[in-house]
Nucleic acid binder design. Sequence first.
DNA 1: GTCCAGGGAATCA
DNA 2: TGATTCCATGGA
Length: 299
Amino acid sequence: MKLKQYTLKNQDSFELKDIFDCGQCFRWNKEPNGSYTGIWKRNVVNVSIINKNQDSTNDILFKGIFETENYEQEIKKYFDLERNYTKIKKQLSDIDENLQKSTKYGKGIRILNQDLWETIISFIISANNNIPRIKGIIERLSKAYGDKIIFEGKEYYTFPTPNQLKNVTVEEYRKLGLGFRDIRLYETTKMILEKQVDLDELKNNQNTLEVRNKLLTLSGVGPKVADCILLFSELKRFEVFPIDVWVRRVMNELYIKEENEEKVSKKKIEKLAKDKFGPLAGLAQQYLFYWRREKDNIA
DNA sequence: GTCCAGGGAATCA
DNA sequence: TGATTCCATGGA
């Protein structure tokens, strides 16, 4: 594994903050110089914008330690570079002014192709939790059971494989600060190791409903977590619509306008999303989520 | 001290 | 099916 770099010129729809802070991933961190460093599979990579062009495209530098010689393909796959996000944003913008506004705000979002196993565990940890603490737990989990990789003098840790978690006890999870999610992690890891849920089979199954129902059998995976896994992992299903407190809030504020937000049923939101956004519901969700959340952060 | 966080599982009607 | 309640933890 050697240090390699790859430069991508005139890339559209690619902004670091939009990609890494939109809530889809937990292992990318901002550096003092504005770049981001993160890890996926066994790749430790720093991403920076080296030039902003007149046509609003960016020149991007990927610098890091890659698992294989085929790092260019790895980057293209992980960052979803083959997909036309300009077209997607245009389609969403045509729906209404809300999507026009939110896709403009999150114009640089790309939905990463994250490892299925890692995404499952990460979003089990996300339940009734906040993003800084989720990130902390995942880092401690990786440091305790993953492999160390040194990049530019700093230590990084791969996300532990199912096998690396095989003998971890519930008590050990509790010590990492997982709280009530300890048993869920333990049980789900066991189920995957024993192939009660076969991840390779899920990756090859094109029937989204079947895959979703299979995910729902895992401990700690309910409707919201299942939809996040479908949307944010390499499964890449854009028709799902994960509903959390923020999505309920923004959907109520923009469309439903019920006085008591907590009274709005998930079912109603789901139907509205399907009717309005169709096969791009998941992406609409992400632009709206990011836009609404950032609005509160600024205020 | 209280509230909240990218919810799920158990329980009960 | 739908509504309540409990579940650890840490920061605001």
